[in-house]
């Protein structure tokens, strides 16, 4: 019981807070990404394939070459739900709740290739070149993509 509480507290301490942002702030992060590889993963708590692939991205949380952002497309009024999810999963990567209802406007700005389906992931290399994927990754596919985009 006590151990469980400590574990829970440790998890809360480790996991990130969730920031609520409008798209221009997210876009600024995309345009100013300066890690060797920055990954913007678009997800939602209600999206099963998104939740399934999250641990694959999270396994890069401690990689100095890779910076991962989880951008939640849960509705803006579901902040508590997203926070609880992040705590429960003990996510160390940065989590942002995108509170924007004009989907068409921002979808096109993330990538012209994005039709709006999630999961969707944008990779930005250190020269600002972007690579867009609109599908769920397997571990093999993600490891290969990250390796490729880091070179």
């Amino acid at each position: 019981m006590v151990t469980g509480m400590f574990a829970l507290m440790a998890m809360i301490a480790l996991s990130q807070e969730v920031k609520v942002m409008k798209f221009p702030e997210v876009q600024k992060k995309i345009l100013s990404a300066d890690a060797p590889l920055t990954i913007f993963n678009f997800w939602a708590t209600w999206c099963a394939p998104c939740v399934r692939e999250m641990p694959l991205f999270e396994s890069y949380a401690d990689d100095p070459n890779v910076k991962v952002y989880f951008i939640s497309l849960d509705f803006g009024d579901r902040l508590e739900k997203v926070k609880n999810f992040v705590t429960k999963k003990g996510l160390k990567s940065e989590v942002i709740l995108l509170n924007e209802s004009d989907y068409d406007a921002y979808i096109g700005k993330v990538s012209k290739e994005w039709t709006g389906a999630i999961p969707a992931t944008l990779f930005v290399d250190e020269w600002g070149k972007t690579y867009f994927h609109e599908s769920e990754f397997t571990k093999k596919e993600l490891d290969a993509a990250i390796k490729k985009y880091l070179n």
């Binding site: 999206c47 068409d104 979808i107 994005w114 709006g116 389906a117 599908s135």
Partner: peptide, 10 residues
């Protein structure tokens, strides 16, 4: 004529 929205991948 066209407006994208979020949805679940087929």
């Amino acid at each position: 004529k066209e407006k994208r929205a979020i949805g679940c991948t087929i």
